[in-house]
Simulated scan of single mutants.
Amino acid sequence: MPEIAEVARIVHFLRLHLVGKTIKKVNAIDDNNVFGKAGTTGQEFAAALTGKKVVDAGSQGKYFWFALP
């Protein structure tokens, strides 16, 4: 599990290098352990993210996230 300072560093990096950019390509292996509980597939996940623009990044405790429109 990462430390909070490590997560803060990643969020800072994401804000500098990812926010404002468009996702051109996504590779998502179809893994039932990852996507099965959400009721989707790797291909559907990749299709949903491709072409989206990253508008924000942040953290909550030891987790980081980025927002898409």
Score class of each variant (00 low, 15 high):
Met1Asn: 07
Pro2Glu: 09
Pro2Ala: 13
Glu3Asn: 09
Glu3Trp: 12
Ile4Pro: 07
Ile4Arg: 10
Ala5Ser: 12
Ala5Glu: 15
Ala5Phe: 12
Ala5Gly: 09
Glu6Gln: 11
Ala8Tyr: 09
Ala8Asn: 11
Arg9Lys: 14
Ile10Trp: 07
Ile10Thr: 13
Ile10Gly: 06
Val11His: 00
Val11Ser: 01
His12Met: 11
His12Thr: 14
His12Ser: 14
Phe13Thr: 09
Phe13Val: 10
Phe13Lys: 08
Phe13Ala: 11
Leu14Val: 00
Leu16Ala: 15
Leu18Thr: 08
Val19Arg: 00
Gly20Ser: 02
Gly20Tyr: 01
Thr22His: 04
Ile23Cys: 01
Lys24Ala: 12
Lys25Glu: 14
Asn27Glu: 12
Ala28Gln: 02
Ala28Arg: 01
Ile29Lys: 10
Ile29Gly: 08
Asp30Asn: 13
Asp30Ser: 04
Asp31Glu: 12
Asp31Asn: 14
Asp31Leu: 12
Asn32Gln: 12
Asn32Glu: 13
Val34Glu: 05
Val34Ala: 12
Val34Thr: 14
Val34Arg: 09
Val34Phe: 05
Phe35Cys: 02
Phe35Pro: 01
Phe35Ser: 01
Lys37Thr: 11
Lys37Met: 11
Ala38Thr: 08
Ala38Tyr: 13
Ala38Asp: 11
Gly39Tyr: 01
Gly39Lys: 00
Gly39Arg: 00
Gly39Thr: 02
Gly39Pro: 02
Gly39Asn: 03
Gly39His: 01
Gly42Pro: 00
Gln43Ser: 13
Glu44Gly: 06
Phe45Ala: 07
Phe45Met: 07
Phe45Lys: 04
Phe45Ser: 04
Phe45Val: 06
Ala47Gln: 14
Ala48Met: 12
Ala48Gly: 07
Leu49Thr: 04
Leu49Val: 06
Leu49Asp: 03
Leu49Ala: 04
Leu49Met: 12
Thr50Ile: 06
Gly51Thr: 05
Gly51Ser: 05
Gly51Lys: 04
Gly51His: 04
Lys52Arg: 15
Lys52Ile: 07
Lys52Ala: 06
Lys53Asn: 08
Val54Ser: 02
Val55Gly: 02
Asp56His: 08
Asp56Glu: 14
Asp56Trp: 04
Ala57Cys: 02
Gly58Met: 03
Gly58Ile: 01
Gly58Glu: 01
Ser59Glu: 11
Ser59Asp: 08
Ser59Leu: 13
Ser59Ala: 15
Ser59Pro: 05
Gln60Pro: 03
Gly61Asp: 06
Lys62His: 06
Lys62Cys: 07
Tyr63Met: 10
Trp65Val: 05
Trp65Ile: 05
Phe66His: 03
Ala67Cys: 07
Leu68His: 03
Leu68Asn: 03
Leu68Glu: 03
Pro69Ser: 05
